[in-house]
């Protein structure tokens, strides 16, 4: 049994407008557990703009600034500047954008903000398409996905943009991936990000969307976990754009992840092999970047995996 050391308080109110099984809601739940009440959240247009509640309700127990789609990076910078001018350097500014607001329309603003090394935590909760508008493809949509704008045989034929690498290339103090299926790791990363004041921190969270991914609402955590276990979404950290730390070593076949999702059900065995190849390539590239620096936790995970496969064989 994995023993979790999780802060007890929640800063989300029940009655919010998230769909059943919403991964993005869980992402926020865990993030705020780590960041606490001294947090201001900036939310550009996204599912979270709805989840947070219609007038006059609020789903969050921290202040929220909802903003236009492209503005997360700049708006967070503005809040930070204003808080600093008011002498409040203790409050964390959390920019909370979806993949559209990060990979696509919000990319310029985010790039500008992190280039200025703004003292904010920038989060992308990634559900890999424009879910709020009815599942249209974004530049975060992975190869092989069917969406309403990549329908039928026109399923997406290009790769998902690698956002952490793009952010790491800005040489920001901290960039990391996290998953709602690994709350302890996620919370730990947010606590780390919170403590690393004075510069830009970026956390990329995979947040499955039952509706958009064609999965049952009870499977969102399970599938987020599979994404990590198959190396489709590796958990890792990059400090100063240089020092890579792998937090988990996956190894399950990608097929395990693909076959349980409606958005991939059209893929043939050959398509899956191709995806496996891409995932392996990316993983090797990442491992290369991690170089000789191996996180002890990752080493442990590898040992456990070997032990498990040995146990299976016998």
């Amino acid at each position: 049994m994995v023993q979790l050391d999780i802060p007890p308080n929640d800063y989300i109110n029940p009655g919010h407008l998230g769909c059943p099984g919403c991964g993005a809601t869980l992402a926020m739940k865990f993030a705020l557990k780590a960041l606490g009440e001294k947090t201001v959240v900036v939310i550009p247009a996204s599912c979270w703009g709805v989840i947070a509640g219609p007038y006059p309700q609020s789903a969050l127990q921290v202040p929220v600034l909802q903003m236009a789609f492209a503005t997360a990076g700049a708006a967070a910078s503005g809040v930070r500047a204003a808080l600093d001018m008011k002498g409040d350097t203790a409050t964390t500014v959390l920019s909370w954008a979806g993949d559209g607001g990060t990979f696509d329309i919000g990319f310029q603003s985010l790039s500008g903000a992190v280039e200025r090394n703004e003292d904010c935590i920038f989060v992308c909760y990634d559900n890999e398409a424009y879910m709020n508008t009815g599942v249209q493809r974004s530049s975060s949509t992975p190869y092989g996905t069917r969406t309403t704008t990549t329908p039928g045989q026109g399923w997406k034929k290009t790769r998902k943009k690698n956002m952490v690498e793009a952010l790491a290339a800005h040489r920001i103090p901290y960039a990391a991936t996290a998953s709602i299926a690994f709350p302890e790791d996620l919370i730990c990363k947010f606590q780390k990000a919170k403590d690393l004041r004075g510069g830009s921190r970026f956390i990329h969270i995979l947040a499955p969307c039952p509706t958009g991914w064609g999965i049952a609402s009870d499977m969102s955590v399970k599938i987020a976990r599979l994404a990590v276990q198959t190396n489709v979404f590796p958990l890792y950290e990059v400090q100063d754009g240089l020092k890579y730390t792998l937090n988990y070593q996956g190894g399950r076949p990608v097929q395990d992840y693909l076959q349980v999702q409606g958005r991939f059900k059209h893929l043939t065995g050959a398509d899956c092999d191709q995806i496996q190849q891409k995932v392996d390539e990316d993983w090797e590239l990442l491992r290369g970047k991690a170089g000789i620096y191996v996180d002890p936790a990752a080493a442990r995970a590898r040992e456990q995996r070997q032990c498990k496969s040995k146990a299976r064989k016998s």
Partner: peptide, 16 residues
Amino acid sequence: PCSRTSTEVNKTGSWR
């Protein structure tokens, strides 16, 4: 458009 109450007024159990 600024909140003055909580989403707790929505009894979302009715979605179930």
